[in-house]
């Protein structure tokens, strides 16, 4: 079954007809040529396909495109302000928070979403007092970023980059 949907990606409106089986990730990558979100596992396990979906970080490989008609999406490519990188992107470069770079767009979107969550006072699994204040220690950063795998093992530098960007 084909359905017409609208998506706004990085500020650009798009209208497209998708088969109901199309995921949001495939709609972006295969139909709109937006290749910043990556396909790692295609099963929700690696975080490479993470974007900001209606303002919150979300994986897109298990989301059906038809279910997100009208969605507002920001990818890592849309976070930079022209040539000026987003502070998270700059920090990842400064700290060698990547090797092959395949997981990086997902890491970037996840980090940006994660910082907003922490800002809003959301606790994590490692927060001792669920109702207390949130301090982004390395342990907190690692836990909150655990949905983003890095096959190159750049984890230590990713945590360092985010720690730096928080300051």
């Amino acid at each position: 079954m084909d359905v017409e949907i609208g998506l706004r990606v990085d500020g650009e409106p798009h209208r497209l007809v998708v088969d109901t089986r199309t995921t949001l990730l495939d709609a972006m990558r295969e139909r709109l040529g937006i290749t910043s979100p990556k396909k790692g596992c295609d099963h929700g396990q690696c975080g490479a396909c993470t974007v900001l979906l209606d303002g919150r970080r979300a994986t897109t490989c298990l989301a059906l495109a038809v279910a997100h008609d009208g969605a507002e999406i920001v990818t890592a490519a849309g976070l930079a302000d022209g040539e000026r990188l987003h502070p998270i992107q700059q920090a990842l470069l400064d700290h060698d928070g990547l090797q092959c770079g395949y997981c990086t767009p997902g890491q970037v979107c996840s980090a940006v979403g994660m910082l907003a969550e922490a800002e809003a006072g959301w606790p994590s699994h490692v927060t001792a007092d669920l109702s207390g204040a949130v301090e982004l220690t390395d342990e907190e950063i690692a836990e909150r970023m655990s949905g983003n795998l890095c096959r190159c093992g750049a984890y230590a530098n990713i945590v360092a980059a985010i720690r730096e960007a928080v300051r």
């Binding site: 929700g44 975080g47 993470t50 979906l53 919150r56 970080r57 979300a58 994986t59 989301a63 996840s110 979403g113 994660m114 969550e117 606790p123 994590s124 699994h125 927060t127 669920l130 109702s131 909150r144 655990s146 949905g147 983003n148």
Partner: peptide, 23 residues
Amino acid sequence: IRQRYPMVSAALLSGASGQLRNV
């Protein structure tokens, strides 16, 4: 929920990932 039923918050926060829990 955090204040009156912390086990519910804790159970959810121990599951999946931030980007999955958001949806």
